[in-house]
Nucleic acid binder design. Sequence first.
DNA 1: TATATTATATTGGTCCGGCCACCCGATGAG
DNA 2: CTCATCGGGTGGCCGGACCAATATAATATA
Lengths: 246, 246
Amino acid sequence: MEAKKNTIEPITKTRLHEEIAERLKDAIIAGDIRPGQRLPTERELADSFKVNRSTVREALKKLEGLELIEIRHGSGVFARDYLESASLELVKGLLLADGGINAGVLEELMELRSLIVPRISQLAARNRSDSDLAALDRVVFHSDEMDMAEKDWRVHNLIARASGNLLFVIVLNAFTDLAGDSGKLYFANEKNRRASERFHRDIYEAIKKRQPERARKIMEEVLEYAAKATLEAASGGSKKRARKKE
Amino acid sequence: MEAKKNTIEPITKTRLHEEIAERLKDAIIAGDIRPGQRLPTERELADSFKVNRSTVREALKKLEGLELIEIRHGSGVFARDYLESASLELVKGLLLADGGINAGVLEELMELRSLIVPRISQLAARNRSDSDLAALDRVVFHSDEMDMAEKDWRVHNLIARASGNLLFVIVLNAFTDLAGDSGKLYFANEKNRRASERFHRDIYEAIKKRQPERARKIMEEVLEYAAKATLEAASGGSKKRARKKE
DNA sequence: TATATTATATTGGTCCGGCCACCCGATGAG
DNA sequence: CTCATCGGGTGGCCGGACCAATATAATATA
């Protein structure tokens, strides 16, 4: 794993306010700014980042959306306790804190996933419509050029939609989104790609034939396999890659 | 002060950019602006809302954080398909779409919850530290003045923290956050408040004695009860209250 | 002295007007 | 017809100004 990968240092975000939001987020998640503590003034931030105050404000608005900070007119900007907030997007930060992928959080993610996804699969087999099936068919059997990560995402997304539970769709997206980097690792392996391919066909069959239990079972197995493979890949491959941001 | 605003409603958000973000969000969730479709220009929005462009930009930044829109430099602002995004906050919008609480989504939320929370409870009983227990004790037995909704939230939050799974804490917060309004309904009922009180004591015992299975069971039962009561309250009590936003 | 009241400073909210960077479609050259 | 060029439109960033909410210090009052 001594590939050139690590030499591609993060390009400074083209959009300044994103870069700023990123840095502040890191500072808060890393604990440099503790919950309840006040951040520097907008004007101070603008000054120290050497940008305009408007730019800082845009960054702060984004962080406010993540429930990572609280902006109080007349008082200042305060860091919130992310353990009392409700923003899954934050987890992405946690997952990547201290540089590299945090194996602990990744494992937690896997467990959470294993609680939900089999149920989604089960419901999909029960509730799927014909058009759901058709869409799934298209992706599974007629999207050869699509790369595997994309394909896999689409399969899961379609299954979730077929389940008839909108909430599940969004939660599932959150998982995929979070697992992002480690997903790449997973699909880098030829064997894993083959496994996914077979999985797609199997789950398609189960859903087509409306076999909820079988669909659930298949999903459970694939998750178990994927979890194992992913954790291996994550712990073996990406060890403490220092994340220099500039 | 001669014109008294008739209804209880609007109290236009004190912060303009929030009001704007809110309206655009509603428009997208309601389907007035379809996925992929382009929104008006920043300048146009500013003009039609009669505000400055900076204000519009701040609102847009927040929506971008919610993954509800995509801002492309040089091209414009586009609505995203929220079924392909990963933001749980959006669900709040779905839950309240068309005015009133959407019973379907609420039910989905309950199901999702029932998949996860018992597991959290189980893990908490297994992994809890002494300080976790102490914190739980304080809330359960020495917070009489605290209102029940707050207390219940704290109990759940502490249990989740005790589970040792940070992800679970955040997901749980998301649930509570989403269920917000319906939770109010639930705790408005004296009988339900009593039920919660007993539940708090029971779950405390199970966690204290490190009885994972019992903890899980208790949680399953309380969820089932709460789901039933909540759905009843939601369908019976809050009928199609029109949500006028101005 | 202790407390209420009033000024004043601090800080976020909004506005103005301008310039730059990027994207895309129209235009014109080959 | 293909391709390079060049606009015009759009978001990104700037700096400076003023308003609104809040916090703090100074002052008046009991």
